[in-house]
Design a binder for these strands. Structure first.
Lengths: 339, 339
DNA sequence: GTGAAAGCGCTAACAC
DNA sequence: GTGTTAGCGCTTTCAC
């Protein structure tokens, strides 16, 4: 532990025999041709020799820019979030930005807390997977002029920028597909929530049932709280499948729900797709390795992450207003679980 | 977009009619009882009214501390990494720290790059899953007096602090278990690497074979490069299982390898555990949902993340030297794939 | 008990 | 072409 002396701008200036201003100009490639070529070269040379590393904190304080973005997801441990995080990381790095992340656990309080903490740390902007009841928090960001873009979740009738998928269409397609395979009693397992993207999935599900002239029975929908566990989902599976008139197909509203649901189905020795066909949202390796490869709605994560990050950074760097509101198409990947 | 005026210390001072120094003292609870109770209360009241949010960047510059730690993993999109990230995030938040992350993709250059970027951003310390050939980079951190702790991977014969598992023991246990179930030709699929933790797994595998009086045949070990794909692993599976004298059990050295391997095994219509028993490192939901629940070596991720973070933060806050070198025990979770 | 002022490391307006 | 210097928003020494 011998903290080697940090090299400062001043050290270089001293060494070369010029002012710190000149050094700053040269190293930032400013006033390009107004500076003596020799001095400039000398400065660059010494900077390299001394292995000068600019203190970004000082720079940030001066410039009022940290080149850092805050990423708020529901839970970084969930593959859906972490895959997005990776894409955002890469996209940000390309442009010289780093990312600080935080998990909200679907709680407004935690989300608000994260926003505050990250704002205090002066992040230049946010990418947020908004939680239920967080409209006010987001609105506040907006009125305070903090740049952000929402991902995955968003608010209808609000001008906030977002990039998400067409959840209505995706659910509709999935249900139509099941209907096309002759399924008559298609169940839905989803969250009991006011989150718009999930409501859209339910709406798509309903619309497809109607369109296909299928029974739209309340008993075919099972909703669990957003922080529910294996047990709660298992109960839903029981309710939908262990009756005298069970569902012959099931649509899961998220990867976590599917995970719990599949476990339950297997534990109950119910066969997929013979006894019940299955389709689910999101993509995970698990779906492909399950004993029956699963039919799933594949969200274009790369596209979501890229568009969100690009737009945000463009806004930050070119001071353009953030207006994008994108609903990308999700692809239905058909496998054996729904055949 | 009407950037509301940021409230500064000065604003509070002005409002209350005191100096910024006093405000700072009060809000940081310093000089507790040397300050007039009334003024103090007034200051706190006004600060709340104005919703004062201290600028952490300014604070950081002054204090030479950012209360930020850098987390470098192989790939944040990999569940192993993201689960650790979540634990570290929580542990850090408890103590008022935030975390910036980066993915190295198992490349020294990227890792070195990340270290530089994060150092420039003045992170107070690092938690790093070191990549191959990164010993020099780590040594440099050490000589520069930058606090860090390694996770998962580490260097033998180096005094660097780390928390990892007993890879030798874990592999030994796994192989012994297979031998105990009557397996005679136990194969290993792992990476061709100099990473110590993986060498340890191989060593444990070998030692167990010897101990159990089993064949230690080079042909039973298949190594792929660390950036290898589904195809490379499939080839390994072919080599080990599609011969006249195939392996009757397989140990996978990581979750990614297992993922690829299981896909290959399924595609080749080889039955687990009838034709080949399987054990793998790491834990994922997939293992439980696979058509045969998988026997796996469960790393104590929570413990790893917690100990690493706690030690690092303790060092940062109490300026204690970082000396922990911990090898935790991994648990073998026995399921049907090895019965 | 309280305040003036220096300074963390950098940038950029302005002067020469 | 190059240097002086004022701050970015905060903490803290030292003086009163």
């Amino acid at each position: 532990m011998k903290p080697k002396k940090k090299i400062l701008l001043k050290d270089i200036a001293l060494e070369v025999g010029v002012s710190t201003a000149l050094v700053s100009y040269v190293l930032n490639n400013q006033k390009e041709n107004r500076i003596g070529k020799e001095v400039a070269d000398k400065i660059r040379k010494v900077a390299k020799e001394l292995n000068y590393q600019p203190n970004q904190i000082a720079k940030s304080l001066k410039m009022q820019k940290t080149h850092t973005i805050g990423l708020i997801v529901a839970d970084i441990a969930n593959p859906f979030s972490s895959q997005l995080a990776r894409i955002i990381e890469d996209e940000a790095k390309k442009k010289g930005y780093t990312v600080i992340f935080g998990s909200s656990d679907e709680k407004v309080d935690k989300m608000q807390d994260l926003i505050n903490v990250l704002l205090n740390r002066q992040v230049d902007g946010f990418i947020i997977a908004a939680v239920e009841q967080s409209e006010v928090a987001i609105e506040q960001l907006d009125t305070n002029g903090v740049p952000f873009v929402l991902i995955d979740r968003y608010f209808p009738n609000q001008p906030f920028p977002y990039v998400a998928i067409d959840n209505y269409g995706a659910a509709f397609t999935a249900v139509s597909h099941l209907a096309g395979r002759g399924k008559k009693k298609i169940g839905l397992i989803t969250y009991e929530t006011s989150l718009f993207h999930l409501l859209e999935r339910k709406r798509g599900y309903r619309a497809a049932l109607l369109y296909e002239n299928l029974e739209d029975d309340k008993h075919l929908v099972h909703e669990v709280t957003i922080d529910s566990t294996q047990q709660d989902v298992k109960q839903g599976i029981r309710r939908l499948l262990l009756t005298e008139n069970p569902a012959d197909a099931l649509l899961f509203g998220s990867n976590t729900l599917a995970m719990y649901g599949l476990k339950a189905i297997r534990d109950l020795n119910i066969l997929i797709p013979e006894q019940v066909a299955v389709v689910t949202f999101d993509e995970t390796d698990t779906y492909n390795l399950f004993y029956v490869p699963l039919t799933y709605i594949k969200q274009p994560l790369a596209e979501i992450g890229k568009q969100a990050t690009e737009a945000l950074l463009k806004c930050l760097q070119e001071h353009q207003p953030l207006t994008l509101q994108v609903n990308l198409n999700a692809e239905l990947v058909v496998q054996k679980s729904s055949m």
